[in-house]
Simulated assay, not measured.
Amino acid sequence: MMELTQDWDKTFPKSDKVDHSKVTFTNRYGITLAGDLYAPKGDGPFAAIAISGPFGAVKEQSSGFHAQTLAERGFVTLAFDPSFTGESGGSPRNVASPDINTEDFSAAVDYLGLLASVDRERIGILGICGFGGMGLNAAAVDKRVKAVAVTTMYDISRMMAKGYFDSNTPEQRAETLEALGQQRWVDAENGAPAYGPVSLELQGGEPQFVVEYAGYYKSEERGFHPRSVNSNASWTLTTPLSFMNMPLLTYIDEISPRPSLFVHGDKAHSLYFSETAYAAAAEPKELFIVEDANHTDLYDQVDKIPFDKFTSFFTENL
């Protein structure tokens, strides 16, 4: 039996306007996931939203903040830890998969749709950062998802396969794959995966967006959480492998005729991910740009996160 923390250990204050409970559910691969269920007061049936991200975060951080706020606005929401991370199951720890993490969203839809308080014909997805890409992939393959919104979205497969701004040359890609193959020999010999240094321990000279990440994940005042990969741990060194040749957004146009919303900050280094995904998506779709917002502002900054936009989008489409 999975033992879940029952104390309120979120990076945001608890709301007395909604009901909160810790829940577990199992994905198609038999991995038990842990989530925080937020529900409006009353019997429903309500529309529901499955929420996860950012990549390397836990449900006590940005996804939980979005979930609680949207529950205050009338939706049943489920913020969950993806497989292999946080309080969710899966071994080894702190590895990611374009397939399994896409499935995690559909498993969350399974859970929500079996609740008596939820109308299973009115379930949507909200994906944050790297789980924006997973959420779009889940919506494309899972027709039960009636609307999908992503915020400060990353296409992790594109970033790992091609580098930031698609800057990797074929030679650099080949070198990366060669290094990953050699690391597999090391891991096989050791019988366990190797991990990199603790994430976001700044040494000086990092790009501004890395400094911004550290400003969220390493700050006790903002987003630090001991179970977060980006706050307190690191990914396995071979985590990029499956992302290198399994593009997440190949079938993004198949989300249509269900609507998609792309929210991004105009100052975000990652804006190009949403711009190109939006261009590849089919109508109905919308690209909503938040002025004077960088990538991590949309994790937790109340004055920047467009909750009114999310509320109207899901109200109209669920």
Rank of each mutant, 00 (worst) to 15 (best):
Met1Pro: 08
Glu3Leu: 03
Thr5Cys: 06
Asp9Arg: 12
Phe12Gln: 12
Lys17Arg: 15
His20Lys: 08
Asn27His: 08
Gly30Tyr: 07
Thr32Glu: 13
Ala34Gly: 13
Gly35Glu: 11
Phe46Gly: 04
Val58Gly: 12
Gln61Glu: 15
Ser62Arg: 07
Ser63Asn: 12
Ala67Phe: 13
Val76Lys: 07
Ser83Met: 02
Phe84Leu: 02
Ser91His: 05
Ala96His: 01
Thr102Gly: 04
Ala108Cys: 09
Tyr111Arg: 04
Leu112Phe: 09
Leu114Pro: 00
Ala116Lys: 13
Arg120Trp: 01
Glu121Lys: 12
Gly124Tyr: 07
Gly127Met: 11
Phe131Tyr: 15
Ala139Trp: 01
Arg144Gln: 07
Ala147Gln: 03
Arg158Cys: 05
Gly163Ser: 14
Thr169Asn: 02
Ala194Gly: 11
Leu200Trp: 06
Glu201Ala: 11
Gln208Pro: 05
Phe209Cys: 05
Val211Leu: 14
Val211Asn: 10
Glu212Arg: 12
Lys218Gly: 06
Glu220Asn: 14
Leu237Cys: 00
Thr238Met: 05
Thr238Val: 02
Pro240Trp: 02
Met244His: 09
Arg258Ile: 04
Ser270Glu: 12
Ser270Arg: 00
Tyr272Ile: 10
Phe273Ala: 08
Thr276Tyr: 09
Thr276Met: 09
Pro284Glu: 02
Glu286Ser: 01
Ile289Cys: 07
His295Glu: 07
Tyr299Gln: 11
Asp300Tyr: 15
Gln301Gly: 00
Val302Met: 11
Asp308Trp: 02
Lys309Thr: 11
Ser312Asp: 14
